[in-house]
Nucleic acid binder design. Structure first.
Length: 412
DNA sequence: TCTGGGGTCCTAGGACCC
DNA sequence: TCTGGGGTCCTAGGACCC
């Protein structure tokens, strides 16, 4: 007998803000914005419910958030804290099922199909899970329960804050129909606008539309959309078993300068530092990359990417930074101001490429050097070791920042 | 409104090969 | 000679998510 799937989607409530409140209880109940100082270049990572009442939401420029809510408390994010709490949550989930997929730092899918005899009916089980997380971390979460990932995710969103919502098997379409199309994961600003243009506003409008029309107008994505409107995990990201771990497809680091720059030395050292950072993570994951991509954003916020696929996969800082500098040189007009630089690696393989014995002997020396450097960084911090340009870069960017007095900045 | 950083997936065109 | 079709790789850009 095969039962209908029971999928939980668990989403932590205002996760970053809630974690910050644990470290500073004075923040509780106040409008809080996580992401940086009010006048910095950057966007809101998370806003407390009190701040949201003023219209502040994540991805909004910090300066805009400040205009909307000047009395808000602006705090820097602490990724290490969030990672730590995320791991704690995961450990609790593992007491309920091994079929877990962390979809991001603050949300997870659980396949609870067939756990009824052991853990009780879905609502009871969800309450137990909610309580277990509260007991262990003092954090609130919301849980959506449904027969598909998609509906479970929409459910947890509707349940927020601090709620549980279960959609009975068979009632998916009726639950989704009155919701705005934007509630469907994957429908963003652009798709919403395109759908509005043809008179579609509610998920129900979408569901009653002829599939052929959607396919014609929106391609493959349109067909997946039709399935989503009915609550199916059709196509794309949702169409995978929960817990099937997928290896990373790319590793990237990028940096937005606090002030646009055309300083060749600063640019060069930043490229070197970013190259070192991605290469390091490559080695941690034990893979080699074939494609190196540069990302450039100018003062006008125009962004280009330029990629180069290497003759053989690499793990080495020098090869990556050499390629990145080449790409940069080919695509930068000296004097042009740069807002952002990024380095991305992709097309991973488990083996290094090899041209001949001489290369391999040289590579081995480099690999040893990199291992030693990684070890030093572990012991003494990231800035302890770097290629020469990278070190200058760290120093310069820090110097550059401390020269500009910022509210609350500590004296060096 | 003046726009971070880390990712995934999709599309589309050109090169190249058979 | 002005010209098919399919497959694969590479590159660039863009939508979307948290």
């Amino acid at each position: 007998m095969s039962s209908v799937p029971t999928i939980f989607h668990l989403d932590m409530d205002a996760f970053f803000v809630s974690v910050e409140e644990l470290f500073d209880p004075a923040l509780k109940g106040k409008p809080v914005v996580v992401g940086g100082k009010a006048h910095e270049r950057g966007v809101v990572s998370a806003a407390s419910y009190a701040a949201r009442e003023f219209g502040v939401h994540s991805a909004m420029p910090l300066r805009t958030a400040y205009k909307l809510c000047p009395q808000a408390i602006f705090v820097e994010g602490h990724p290490d804290r969030y990672r730590d709490y995320s791991h704690q949550v995961r450990a609790i989930l593992e007491n309920f099922t091994p079929l877990i997929e962390m979809a991001s730092i603050d949300e997870a899918y659980l396949d609870m199909t067939g756990t009824g005899r052991l853990l009780g009916p879905p609502l009871q089980c969800a309450h137990a899970l909610h309580q277990a997380i509260k007991d262990a971390t003092a954090l609130n979460c919301s849980i959506g329960i449904a027969t598909s990932r998609l509906v479970a995710k929409v459910c947890s969103d509707q349940a927020k804050p601090n709620g549980i919502l279960w959609i009975y098997p068979g009632l998916e379409a009726r639950f989704l129909a009155p919701l705005p199309i934007r509630k469907i994961p994957g429908v963003g600003k652009v798709t919403e606008k395109n759908l509005h243009a043809i008179g579609i506003h509610k998920v129900g409008d979408l569901a009653s539309l002829d599939e052929g029309v959607l396919g014609q107008r929106f391609g493959k994505w349109g067909l997946a959309l039709a399935g989503k409107a009915r609550g199916e995990d059709a196509g794309g990201w949702f169409d995978q078993d929960i817990g099937a771990h997928a290896d990373a497809k790319s590793i990237s680091h990028e940096h937005t300068f606090s002030i646009d720059t055309s300083d060749a030395e600063l640019i060069d050292s930043t490229l070197t530092r970013l190259s070192e950072m991605v290469a390091r993570r490559l080695r941690e994951q034990g893979v080699h990359a074939r494609t190196v991509q540069l990302k450039l954003r100018n003062r006008a916020f125009e962004t280009i990417t330029r990629a180069r696929t290497l003759a053989r996969p690499t793990q080495l800082d020098i090869e990556i930074s050499r390629t990145i500098r080449e790409l940069f040189r080919e695509n930068w007009k000296p004097g042009a101001e740069i807002r952002l630089l990024g380095v991305q690696l992709s097309h991973f393989t488990s083996e290094a490429g090899q041209l001949n014995l001489l290369d391999s002997a040289q590579d081995e020396r480099w690999r040893e050097a990199m291992r030693a450097a990684d070890h030093m960084r572990d012991r003494f911090g990231n800035s302890a070791v770097g290629l020469a340009a990278g070190m200058r870069g760290n120093f310069r960017e820090r110097t550059h920042e401390t020269l500009i007095p910022k509210p609350g900045a500590k004296k060096p």
